[in-house]
Write a protein that binds this DNA or RNA. Structure first.
Lengths: 142, 142
DNA sequence: TTACGTGCAAATAATTTGCAGTCCC
DNA sequence: GGGACTGCAAATTATTTGCACGTAA
């Protein structure tokens, strides 16, 4: 956790034009203090409760949306109704483990498009999202 | 519509182990009678109403899920909470027009991965979903 | 001080489910 | 005729919003 002291977090929020309130700092610490993560609102809320951070689910939702708007997080669309947020906001792609619904980053070097498609007329490409669905192989030997 | 007469639809449903009921045939006709389409449950429900097909929204949802389970449709995850269904169930990818939320097929020849990433340990690749987000260019000359 | 942020619970939106009646085989 | 299918409305799940109070600047 030494890599993300509170004052760095506060600066980060400041630069994003977000007041570094107790709740935002606490949620930011949970989000950014442990490397790249993929979380739903519910998951973050549970972590906050486990960490004895007093915060409401509504504030978790609001905070995630504010962080996303500020470019601190990236929202990822996957099958299912829940929204995932990625603490790595830079462009990259994901594995989706079908059984568990877990997301795993794909190292950028492992993936590239051979050919960029021509966009429909009157449109420009804004970004590319790739999800590689993977399935657990049956374990041998139990 | 000549390309999808009702008896072909009935056979299709039969092969999928689904009874060709009035509602399923009618919804299948709307879905498959007009080429490749990308629809939400709500959109299909509206089309059914416009076509004077007596069907409830719940049945539209159930039918879409049954068709998807049978491999007749493919569910597509995009940003936002609504589920899209693609009448082209074969593997292919999509443009997502950000302003309208519309989906457009990408010709398969226009897109290829230069390198398939190694799956996480204990996993096998089940499929790849690519969404190319595009933005409307400002129109000139009004 | 003062506007922004937060908590709570009710409101929404999308989707699913239970049950009684209908229809295909 | 029997079991699968449908319709309706209520239930669920995920998320947003309104309002009164708290708090950072």
């Amino acid at each position: 956790m030494a890599g993300c002291p509170v004052h760095v977090l506060r600066d980060k929020l400041r630069q994003a034009q977000l007041r570094p309130t107790r709740q935002r700092v606490a949620l930011g610490w949970l989000l950014f203090g442990r490397g790249d993560r993929h979380l739903t609102a519910e998951m973050l809320f549970e972590e906050a409760k486990a960490a004895r951070v007093p915060v409401s689910l509504a504030t978790v939702y609001n905070t995630l949306r504010q962080f996303t708007g500020a470019g601190l997080l990236r929202e990822i669309a996957v099958e299912g109704s829940r929204a995932f947020f990625d603490t790595n906001a830079t462009p990259h792609h994901h594995f989706l483990v079908e059984e568990s619904g877990a997301l795993v980053d794909i190292p950028d070097s492992d993936l590239a498009l051979a050919e960029i498609p021509s966009p429909p007329p009157g449109c420009a490409i804004a970004g590319v999202d790739i999800v590689v669905r993977v399935r657990r192989l049956p374990q041998k030997g139990g």
